[in-house]
Design a binder for these strands. Structure first.
Lengths: 234, 234
DNA sequence: TCGCCCCATTTTGTTGACAGTTGTCAATAA
DNA sequence: TTATTGACAACTGTCAACAAAATGGGGCGA
């Protein structure tokens, strides 16, 4: 059982009154899941949670039903709810969806590009090149994340952005999560430069293609890495 | 209030025991929303529903929280839940997401195309041409729906298919729903033929482009029709 | 007549309790 | 030793009741 009884997260919950208890619980549960504190496959015990958060089971059940609809947990009747476990096949499917959404975001962004944004994006890619030379993955990863987030949130389509983030989050449920983050840093950043050029040109077709390809290649790297060693999906 | 007290749908609910009451209620509520029996903006009264379905409020609350996560209803604290109302801007955003997903489906399908599927798809397009000549929209619409569904469900990516359908469903919440279905029948079917050719060629790039463009053009038709007359989104 | 305040009613938020189901473990028999 | 059975414990599914908030209407005063 991965439950602890510290009261840390509890404060955030008790303070709020403007927002419903259910949604606060949902946010907290989502955090626990995405950070891995609740591991994929783990069972979510309603009584334990209600004790931990000092509420009854009702709001917790509502929160888990919401998380089920979002695809983060699985509800089995008379058995309980479990943190969803993604297979390699699931992860690959998600990559295709991600590629489609990210490509569309690139297209939209190319058609509404600004100089400031181009400067900001270029700076991120430059810094990624720097840390990639040093092979420092720990520094590369957050920059990479910021780069992608900036593109998606700037494309002007909030629906698309929300969906994109939902699927990126879902990848956290993938057991062999290290594979997702792997891949050549320098190679990946060369793709970033191609994306930048397409965005700067204002050519929507080209931007969509480069952005789509970036995720598609990441998927390829995932498959290649997966078929090598840790391909078990039990 | 659009509630009636007939016991028709109730039977389906009481019979089942293997599936939870919550998910049965959720399905029924989703049906009521998508068919328009519960109109966009309508308030969902927990007590009324619990009386109507003969349950307590608990399962109904869980079902509505799930529908909220799916984007079909909106929950306002201490006020209740309302059937979500889509603005024109929302609908346009959804079209972009749909285009991205449909394009990806086209690409995937092109790479795993079979002769039988091509025959089946061609038959649908042929029949659409027939009824389009007669200007019979009532016959065209279900054929068109079947055509798109067949493509998406055959692409081999269940995650993508589920997302696509989720967004198509959400379009039912758009007030000026007639606009969504509008557009030239013959024009639209000409795009279908281009998609067929791309699928038959097995060229993923080309298939993605033709499929993406098909939805993008539908979006354009929506915008054109919307800016003309019924552009109010109150 | 118009605007504001107060109170009753309605509705939601949350809780605790009970019933039914699942999983476990020990005792028994082969 | 191993398989089976029965009882117990833990947990989920559902419900009814209480508390808090919002809605609506009537009365009062300007």
């Amino acid at each position: 059982m991965t439950m602890n009884t510290d009261t840390g997260p509890l404060n955030d919950l008790s303070v709020v009154k403007s927002v419903s208890l259910t949604s606060a619980l949902e946010k907290e549960l989502e955090r626990l899941i995405l950070t891995g504190e609740l591991e994929p496959g783990a069972r979510i015990n309603e009584i334990h949670l209600s004790n931990r958060f000092g509420t009854s089971r009702g709001p917790i059940r509502e929160a888990t039903r919401s998380l089920e609809a979002k695809g983060l947990v699985e509800v089995v009747r008379n058995r309980g709810v479990f943190v969803r476990r993604l297979t390699v096949e699931d992860a690959i499917e998600i990559y295709d969806v991600r590629a489609a959404l990210f490509g569309q975001a690139g297209r939209l962004l190319a058609e509404r590009m600004t100089d400031e944004l181009l400067v900001e994006l270029t700076r991120l890619v430059d810094r990624m090149d720097m840390v990639a030379d040093q092979g420092s993955f720990d520094e590369y990863y957050p920059l990479n994340l910021a780069f992608h987030n900036l593109i998606v949130t700037s494309c002007g389509n909030r629906t698309l952005a929300a969906e994109y983030h939902r699927f990126v989050n879902k990848l956290h449920l993938f057991r062999a999560r290290a594979l997702v983050q792997g891949g050549g840093l320098a190679v990946s950043n060369r793709e970033h430069r191609a994306m930048l050029e397409a965005l700067a040109s204002g050519d929507g077709d080209r931007a969509q293609m480069t952005h789509w390809r970036h995720v598609a290649l990441a998927k390829r790297r995932l498959i290649a890495a997966g078929s090598g060693g840790a391909s078990r999906n039990d």
